[in-house]
Nucleic acid binder design. Structure first.
Lengths: 206, 206
DNA sequence: TGTGTAAGTAAGTGACTACTTGCATTTGCG
DNA sequence: CGCAAATGCAAGTAGTCACTTACTTACACA
């Protein structure tokens, strides 16, 4: 049963580098330190193995956003940073998945889980912010969320290829996008009455 | 000499659908209505043909942005719409190119031409806007440009997979992103004194 | 000690891959 | 017409692909 996990991990790594067609059972077996025949005995086919592997890699949780906003700049910045980091760590496999989706639509189901969740969370938070009356400008949460997430997504996908196009330094990018968003919403950027010191922003992973 | 172009076009179409490894010389020949051998006589190798094809598809121009801003909302909306349309029309091939870039870095040279140009144009325009004193807020042109372009890019790449995550209706998306940007810059959204009627926003294609 | 299960080994199958060769046919042009 | 370049056609080469079969080895447990 250990070889099973080794094979799945190896499949993920090879897939992230070479995509579906480049991921041969031979390469997976080598990467897993396992005989090629074992793959077919365990999973039946390459297709089934990749399906299994995709199920695993795309099922992770995100940093949470509080239900009731208290320090928007701080909370949104932390969330943006964790989202950006999540995408950066997985940029290779995300690129491959987006590329294969048209040919293998069943992949999109798992692949879209994280961004869907992120969008829902962010929209919910922004709507709460609006309801609180903390925003000076009128805005549509969905558009605002699409702007912030789009900027973060594009940064994660594109900075490696064109570093000069994205804001510097890299580590402050999430913060800069967040501040930009808040400016558009008309949220004043000073912290609120500081009653809460440490906020829980643990990373979930399932 | 006509078959040469047919082969290049076919190669682009097949590549956009199936990526490098899925683009077999057999499939290209079929799509071009040409014998497989002709491909090798014309281009020498599949590798060389794809290189040639990528050179073609990625060398297009964008809608221009005026050097001196006059009606920011109108001008930026038109630009955003044309940029979004450009990305949408090429979303398949862009996905494939992004996916193959790590394995074939020479592709990124051509692929990054359009977004680099777009970013430079937009930054230049936003800087001019700032210099004109039309913006109420302080901002970094590069960050602002990354936000708008990121939102547009993510829309073009992701709306097909998750339509409910992006603002509706689809045709107004570019406008909404643009308005959001202008709000963050503190640009008041009414048109200026209307001295100029028709603005030149022709599509260049080289 | 015997038995079942997971794994390795070796060999092979048929389909597909990029690419080549040799020869017949078409096409454009002076 | 006559010639040459471009193309089609048929066949073949060497390699890789996913996947199978038949057999052996290693280990757990009773």
């Amino acid at each position: 049963m250990n070889s099973r996990n080794e094979i799945i991990n190896a499949a993920c790594q090879v897939f992230a580098k070479l995509g579906f067609r480049g991921t041969t059972t031979r390469r997976i077996a080598d990467a897993a330190g396992v005989n090629e025949v074992t793959i077919f005995r365990q999973f039946g086919s390459k297709e089934a193995l990749i399906r299994e592997a995709m199920k695993m890699t795309h099922s992770v949780g995100l940093a949470p956003l509080p239900d009731v906003p208290s320090d928007p700049e701080r909370e949104l910045t932390l969330w943006s940073e964790s989202f950006l980091q999540h995408l950066r760590l997985r940029s290779s496999i995300i690129r491959k998945t987006m590329s294969e989706m048209e040919e293998r639509p069943e992949m999109s189901e798992h692949a879209s889980y994280v961004p869907r969740q992120a969008s829902a969370d962010l929209c919910h938070y922004l709507a709460a912010l609006k309801r609180q009356g903390k925003t000076a400008e009128k805005f549509e949460p969905k558009t605002a969320a699409a702007m912030l997430m789009g900027a973060i997504f594009a940064d994660a996908m594109g900075r490696g290829m064109m570093p000069d196009v994205y804001p510097q330094p890299e580590e402050k990018a999430a913060q800069m996008y967040t501040r930009f968003l808040l400016k558009a919403l008309g949220v004043e950027n000073h912290a609120p009455r500081t009653t809460n010191k440490t906020k829980r922003t643990k990373q979930l992973s399932a």
